[in-house]
């Protein structure tokens, strides 16, 4: 699971008001290479919740992202490279995602988060 997906995911449990962002417990992180597309990154920059993104990338062991960001930073190649790397190249292989309100753990195995809910949680 990459951080682009983590930034989209939220907890779907009944009764949870704000299930975003899920906290990451990383046991195994892999890095993959992907071709960069600056237009896509610009579009994603508008959608990404930056604070959640920074916290998540730190939980994955990547600390190169600035605490605050604005659209003027997209002109910098260095920033784009870091953004691209954190968003699309870091991959959580093993670990868990934790709901911020209920503490429910969603295990991640082989890069696939298990978001199935029990019957009482639907």
């Amino acid at each position: 699971m990459r951080l682009i997906t983590h930034n989209m995911l939220s907890s779907n449990i009944k009764g949870v008001v704000n299930g975003f962002p899920l906290r990451i417990e990383a046991e195994k992180v892999m890095e993959k290479t992907m071709e960069m597309n600056s237009e896509f990154l610009e579009k994603m920059f508008e959608k990404v919740d930056w604070k959640a993104f920074v916290d998540a990338s730190r939980a994955m062991g990547y600390t190169e992202l600035p605490e605050e960001a604005n659209s003027s930073m997209l002109d910098s190649d260095e920033f784009l490279n870091r953004f691209h790397h954190a968003l699309l190249e870091l991959d959580l292989e093993e670990g868990a995602l934790v709901c911020p309100e209920t503490g429910r753990r969603f295990p991640v195995s082989k890069g696939i988060p298990n978001m199935l809910l029990h019957e009482d949680e639907v």
Binding site: M1, R2, I4, T5, G111, I112, P113, N114, M115, L116
Partner: peptide, 8 residues
């Protein structure tokens, strides 16, 4: 290439 989720 895409990300995968196990869910209902």
């Amino acid at each position: 290439e895409g990300d995968l989720l196990l869910g209902d």
